[in-house]
């Protein structure tokens, strides 16, 4: 899979992948984690969240895993392809920041 092909990621997609990279979560856990992470910059709702999750599953970025004690809900974890897309996007953003920051520092 060519990760570059999918860049840039929408902020919402990036946050979902970043949150899942730390730990597997179920739907509401994701909504809450993304909301806290973005300090209400990105608000998720069930309909949009599961639409994104369906797309990411289809692309092989995430996968369903056994939720353990909380097995009543479907739990998602990041897949290797998701990891590489996330890494590619983060390094793209870092390069971008490196290029832009001196302009602010100079001003």
């Amino acid at each position: 899979m060519d990760a570059q092909h999918h860049l840039p990621l929408a902020p919402r997609d990036l946050l979902i992948l970043a949150v899942l990279a730390e730990a597997p979560l179920h739907g509401y856990g994701l909504i809450k984690a993304v909301e806290q992470r973005s300090r209400s910059g990105v608000l998720l709702d069930p309909a949009n969240l599961y639409r994104v999750l369906r797309r990411m599953s289809g692309l092989g970025w995430i996968q369903q895993v056994d939720g353990g004690e909380n097995s009543r809900r479907r739990t998602y974890a990041i897949a290797p392809d998701g990891q590489s897309v996330l890494r590619a996007e983060l390094s793209r953003l870092e390069r971008l920041l490196d290029q832009a920051k001196p302009a602010v520092a100079a001003g």
Binding site: P46, L49, Y50, R54
Partner: peptide
């Protein structure tokens, strides 16, 4: 198709969201 796949999970997520 979408309903069969995700509706139950979406309803559960809503219940949690609403509860908080």
């Amino acid at each position: 198709g979408v309903r069969k796949q995700d509706a139950q999970e979406m309803a559960l997520a809503f219940v949690d969201l609403w509860a908080e």
